[in-house]
């Protein structure tokens, strides 16, 4: 049997969160994410941070970048308490992404995602293609290096 890389289009916020949840659940070593605060807040409704916590307890590493503001500080703190490494970026215009074990990913080009609800439409791309994951990770690492440590940002706020 030859396993080919697959790609699937996801069309709602709810489905995107479910796909993200599955990626974290099946990750064994590492998860990286770059998400809007609105999506982070919704992720709690799916119990996604608990899945990240379980991964960390098994020795995995979870790193994330978001825009930390007064309103998203509480959510960020809860993630950090779980052991996630979080950094703040002021302005990020591009894609949101979540990559598990440098292979499986979900990403979307996000525009004006301020008020977002579970049933909102969205176009996202899920794939387990390695080269696509490499591309997302290269973008993530660039943003990570430019981002500010969440603790430092929290002190500023």
């Amino acid at each position: 049997m030859i396993i080919m890389a697959k790609g699937i289009i996801i069309e709602s916020v709810k489905d995107a969160l479910a796909a993200g949840s599955n990626i974290i659940e099946s990750a064994e070593k590492e998860v990286v994410w770059l998400l809007e605060p609105a999506m982070l807040a919704l992720s709690f409704q799916f119990g996604i941070p608990n899945k990240s916590k379980m991964l960390i307890e098994k020795g995995g590493r979870v790193r994330g970048i978001t825009k930390i503001s007064g309103t998203s500080l509480d959510v960020t703190r809860r993630l950090m308490d779980n052991g996630e490494e979080v950094r703040h970026i002021d302005q990020y215009q591009g894609a949101f992404m979540l990559v598990g074990d440098k292979k499986e990913s979900i990403s979307s080009i996000n525009v004006n995602m301020v008020d977002v609800s579970l049933d909102d439409p969205l176009v996202a791309f899920w794939t387990d293609d390695q080269a696509y994951a490499d591309f997302l990770i290269a973008t993530f690492e660039t943003a990570w290096n430019e981002a500010v440590d969440a603790e430092k940002r929290a002190r500023e706020l």
């Binding site: 790609g7 699937i8 289009i9 525009v111 791309f125």
Partner: peptide
Amino acid sequence: IAALWTDDPTYARYLLSTFETL
């Protein structure tokens, strides 16, 4: 630069759908 090239039809549909929205 860091750009991604692909001939994946699903990825093309994803980008086209995003394009039409924007």
